[in-house]
Simulated assay, not measured.
Amino acid sequence: MTIHIGAEPGQIAETVLLPGDPLRAEWAAQTFLKDPVCVNRVRGMLGFTGTWQGHRVTIHGSGMGMPSLSIYANELIRDYGVNTLIRIGSCGAMQESVELRDVIVAMTASSLSTPSSGIFRELNFSPCANYELLAAAVSSARTLKTKYHVGGIYSADVFYDERPDLNEIMTRHGILGVEMETAELYNLAARHGARALAVLTVSDHLLSHKSLSSEDRESSFGDMVQIALEAAFAPAE
């Protein structure tokens, strides 16, 4: 047990999927895992462990924003021996070619700052995904015939952003979408020698201002979870 995770030793798998919303963790576990068991309820941040095609996997909420994710990712890696972490979440599109319900596989994650910024100091460290996971996710998306995009995303510090100038610059430089967690996840994975990836579903669009309803979001996230699971357990080449 840790300060924020009540699971006993051995109750969390070496592979963890990380949705921000704990209720989405519950939905994904009940939908995709065999015999899921709730292993954490501390502060309402639900975590479930079960099996997928014979592989043990945990689906655990991470909360909103990089500080919250940093807490859970740190404890999962350091205290529970997790070595593969895949964020499954929603994002806002920043390119005309990206549409609602599309899947974004995040190769890199830009940010203004992260909880790790104090360590890097003057260094502009470039956090990126694990290539094996990324390649496997792309292969899975192709097999599922899911419309997907691979490239850089932006991990924001705030949800209610008032920097249209910054958004315009990122759009000009090809940033595919914006969310609030991935940059710190990639930082922590690099620091601790773990594998990390973010597979995101586009739920709203910064340019067209279109968005999915809460019901549409849930029904549209199945491909993202399937892609993440297939990537996590893809055979090594």
Rank of each mutant, 00 (worst) to 15 (best):
190 A>H: 15
192 H>A: 13
141 A>S: 10
9 P>H: 06
18 L>M: 13
229 L>I: 00
27 W>G: 04
162 E>I: 03
13 A>E: 11
87 R>H: 06
140 S>Q: 03
191 R>I: 11
231 A>S: 14
58 T>V: 02
9 P>N: 03
59 I>P: 07
120 F>V: 07
145 K>Q: 10
119 I>C: 01
86 I>T: 05
107 M>V: 03
158 V>A: 12
20 G>L: 02
62 S>T: 09
29 A>T: 03
103 V>G: 07
91 C>M: 12
154 Y>G: 00
2 T>C: 03
195 R>P: 01
165 D>H: 11
221 F>C: 08
171 T>K: 14
56 R>K: 15
87 R>Q: 08
88 I>K: 06
139 S>L: 04
167 N>W: 14
185 L>Q: 06
36 P>Q: 12
208 S>E: 05
223 D>Y: 15
150 V>P: 15
227 I>A: 06
5 I>D: 01
221 F>W: 11
171 T>E: 08
160 Y>K: 08
154 Y>P: 00
117 S>W: 11
162 E>N: 14
102 D>A: 07
54 G>N: 13
197 L>A: 13
208 S>H: 11
29 A>H: 04
31 T>C: 07
130 N>P: 03
197 L>E: 07
75 E>I: 00
28 A>C: 08
216 D>V: 09
200 L>P: 02
183 A>L: 12
162 E>F: 14
145 K>M: 14
74 N>S: 05
185 L>R: 10
3 I>P: 04
224 M>E: 09
148 Y>R: 10
181 E>I: 06
100 L>G: 12
44 G>A: 09
147 K>T: 09
55 H>Q: 09
8 E>N: 12
114 T>P: 08
48 F>C: 00
197 L>H: 12
190 A>Q: 14
160 Y>M: 05
92 G>R: 12
14 E>P: 06
89 G>Y: 11
70 S>L: 03
164 P>C: 14
56 R>S: 15
140 S>I: 02
233 F>G: 10
10 G>L: 02
24 R>K: 08
190 A>R: 13
143 T>A: 14
27 W>P: 07
48 F>Q: 04
47 G>E: 09
50 G>N: 08
125 F>D: 01
48 F>L: 05
230 E>K: 01
90 S>Y: 02
196 A>P: 00
153 I>G: 15
96 E>P: 15
133 L>A: 05
7 A>K: 04
35 D>A: 15
220 S>D: 09
195 R>V: 07
218 E>K: 04
226 Q>V: 10
216 D>E: 15
76 L>H: 03
63 G>C: 02
96 E>R: 15
65 G>I: 06
126 S>R: 12
209 H>W: 09
25 A>H: 02
117 S>N: 04
120 F>E: 05
82 V>S: 05
123 L>R: 10
16 V>D: 04
139 S>P: 00
219 S>W: 14
153 I>C: 12
176 L>N: 02
191 R>K: 12
79 D>G: 01
73 A>V: 12
79 D>F: 04
202 V>T: 01
126 S>A: 13
172 R>V: 02
235 P>C: 09
199 V>K: 13
235 P>F: 10
119 I>V: 04
231 A>L: 07
12 I>E: 02
103 V>C: 13
12 I>A: 11
232 A>M: 04
93 A>Q: 13
163 R>E: 04
186 Y>S: 04
230 E>L: 03
60 H>T: 03
